[in-house]
Design a protein around this nucleic acid. Sequence first.
DNA 1: TGTTGGCACTCCCCGTGAGCGAGTGCCAAG
DNA 2: CTTGGCACTCGCTCACGGGGAGTGCCAACA
Lengths: 338, 338
Amino acid sequence: MLSERRLEVLRAIVQDYVGTEEPVGSKALTERHKLGVSPATVRNDMAVLEDEGFIAQPHTSAGRIPTDKGYRLFVDKLAGVKPLSSPERRAIQNFLDGAVDLDDVVGRTVRLLAQLTRQVAVVQYPSLTRSTVRHVELLALAPARLMLVLITDTGRVEQRMIDAPAPFGETSLADLRARLNSRIVGRRFADVPQLVQDLPDSFEQEDRGVVSTVLATLLETLVEETEERLMIGGTANITRFGHDFPLTIRPVLEALEEHVVLLKLLGEAKDPGMTVRIGHENAHEGLNSTSVVAVGYGSGDEAVAKLGVVGPTRMDYPGTMGAVRAVARYVGQILAES
Amino acid sequence: MLSERRLEVLRAIVQDYVGTEEPVGSKALTERHKLGVSPATVRNDMAVLEDEGFIAQPHTSAGRIPTDKGYRLFVDKLAGVKPLSSPERRAIQNFLDGAVDLDDVVGRTVRLLAQLTRQVAVVQYPSLTRSTVRHVELLALAPARLMLVLITDTGRVEQRMIDAPAPFGETSLADLRARLNSRIVGRRFADVPQLVQDLPDSFEQEDRGVVSTVLATLLETLVEETEERLMIGGTANITRFGHDFPLTIRPVLEALEEHVVLLKLLGEAKDPGMTVRIGHENAHEGLNSTSVVAVGYGSGDEAVAKLGVVGPTRMDYPGTMGAVRAVARYVGQILAES
DNA sequence: TGTTGGCACTCCCCGTGAGCGAGTGCCAAG
DNA sequence: CTTGGCACTCGCTCACGGGGAGTGCCAACA
């Protein structure tokens, strides 16, 4: 185990490097931090930290920079979560309060997060699987052409066209609509399949085909839309990620375009609290020189989706984590209110 | 007026520069193109072209590169629109045919366009103002809480919550729903306001407040959603824009984030055909070193929205224009079918 | 055993200068 | 108007050489 002071040295190195973006040497460290020891001692400590793999030098006779492992130790043991200042809190609240619908909430959140952290923000739309049904609507656009509209408690609306195998009377339609709603409104998506299982049997023979088709489409919508959507913002901030440009930036932009990858990334964050993935801890290769800070948010006590930021491994972890957590809380509140 | 050969020289310069990304000199030009004259002659022509402002040299004693004005002449007079190869056409069709809903169509289009042009693609969602109403649905979520769902002929769905000033019975609701639909289904959004103007009068006194509120929300939706949405793709391609990195790329990314700016940009493209804005012709400063190729698309004979790409001024204009036009056509077809 | 100052050493970084070469402008001849 | 010739410009590359920040090691000291 590392001594108290060595940890302190590591913390100092991380802080300085994050600030200056330049390898930090022993002398500069003792000058900027009150470690109470001489540069020579710090050098010894650095040698140990390097042996253990927490820091590295880009070249012989250069200062040290933290490794992924070093950052990991930093966030696990050395860094707290820096709470936001109260003006910041107020700004968040004001900014989010004006939202009019779900798209707007997500849009504002992503902009806010990008602005606060000066990094790339990613916000997942509230997931359908954990949400409940607020209403199902069935419309006849033509005798054998129906539209299914599904409204969730998080304000999301999904619609699907249905080509019915046979014409379907207005009364049967109203009947189906009513029965469907009475069964599944207020229920979780995951529970819907078994709740509607026996519904076709209660209809006239001639209508069963249509009913089955409608139900099939409904269930399909539930499954399909579990492929969640997300919104990204602050892409311009990648220019801050590093100086070694085209090389670093390209794969990151590509990764950001693949929403599937990002969703997986967010999804992996199983931790009920905040999850921080540093550099190579990210499964996706393009993000090997970035860190992802993610946290769940939700309208109630349960998380319905995730949000987070993607930034350089060399980032201000306490500040970023503070911002991410705070934004998630406020979004949760907003969703609960609406 | 410039002689035939001088135009030919300009064309050759543009083509070579687009290919190599390096200033092109007189000797190289005569070698790669059959101009039938000597380098010295070409040098004279170049001097003229430079005087006229069509080309410039980065430094004394370097080759020439086209200016914005040079590109402008090139696209106006010298370049055709390069039709796509038939495998490409087939690929487009296949790729777009699988789309299941509007989001999917737009999403596929944007990816397709980005892939074909290797540039940043921008696709505007079909505008509401020009589309027609397919259906309006009114649901009572609670006695005094309604939801309005608006479905357009382009497959777009908008929903709004309404807090009614008074409870509203199910029969009244059904009545309003029916009357509303019979009046505005199939009509253009722009015509809706006057079509519903006198609707409250035909209701019982006690229901008029609610009806007015509903109508107000409906009209508001029409107006508000004229702020159109758009989707962007292929952002990673900005890394191809130039070598002078952080400087160029940052403002472009910022501009791409401001959808309002992009919408304005697309909107300015009044031309019924294709519009090409080159470098400083773009009003937005961040896009001064990029070109925008945009064209309208629509389900019928009329354009309902725009799509296009943003790329370096140094782009393959004929190829890009060909791809943009072809994609717009196919998207139009897809929309018309659905 | 841990800490400290001293010291030689290693390299990165940066400015300088030379040589190269692509490209130009001009001129005189065809 | 076109062409070949020619001197000139200037960006690019590379080698050379301090300067400096930082290191590792060692011997001395608590």
